[in-house]
């Protein structure tokens, strides 16, 4: 997995609340293998009208937002369906960080496992950041995961992320490697648990 330590890039504002994973990646794209790249399907039904034409008023379509690596989103970003492909779509489009007041729990976990930082800030800070990057599309925003800070112009904001996700992103860690180092404890748990909770194993039908 790609590491995340710090990032300086332009940002795209998308401040409407409750942008759920059905909006991030409509279900009809879930059949796509990752190798196909899901970036073109990101926000498909918000970006394009039913005839397939790009909506000029959707921020991602604006030339000034091309190359943005940071998404400044609204409250409860990524709620709903557990589809990890929503994270793939954001990542494959080129984003490496989403700043929002809150995230869907499953989405945030999926993001940390795929090199996408979910930086939670207060509602007021999110609104201020969205305003700043709306007013000046060329404005660079710097995210530092070591210090959990965001710098935009002369303002500095603190963000939160769960410590496990932070470690994962900083080190580019894969859970499976970590878990394998616990192999002996897993086996011991399994053996003891079979005696402790015999009913937990499926009966023969």
């Amino acid at each position: 997995m790609e590491k995340f330590t710090s990032l300086t890039a332009t940002a795209c504002p998308l401040p409407q609340p409750n942008l759920n994973t059905d909006q991030i990646l409509p279900a009809r794209f879930l059949k796509w293998p990752r190798s196909r790249g899901l970036g073109t399907a990101l926000f498909a039904d918000l970006r394009c009208d039913p005839a397939g034409n790009e909506r000029a008023d959707f921020p991602l379509n604006q030339p000034a937002r091309h190359g943005a690596k940071i998404l400044v989103a609204g409250r409860n970003f990524g709620g709903g369906s557990s589809r990890e492909a929503a994270v793939y779509a954001i990542f494959d489009h080129g984003f490496r960080c989403v700043i929002a007041p809150s995230f869907g729990d499953i989405f945030a976990q999926n993001a940390s496992k795929n090199g996408l930082l979910t930086a939670a800030v207060s509602e007021a800070d999110a609104a201020e950041l969205a305003d700043a990057v709306t007013a000046d599309p060329g404005r660079n925003v710097t995210i530092d995961l070591e210090t959990t800070t965001i710098r935009c112009g002369n303002r500095t904001y603190r963000f939160t992320i769960d410590p496990v996700g932070r470690n994962q992103l900083l080190n580019g860690w894969d859970d499976v490697d970590l878990t394998e180092s616990f192999g002996a404890r897993i086996s011991a748990y399994r053996d003891a648990d079979r005696l402790r909770r015999p009913w937990a194993n499926p009966a023969k039908p």
Partner: peptide, 13 residues
């Protein structure tokens, strides 16, 4: 509910 990476983790561990 979990995402695909977690599904893979559970499959393996």
């Amino acid at each position: 509910g979990i995402g695909a990476s977690e599904v893979a983790h559970v499959l393996m561990t």
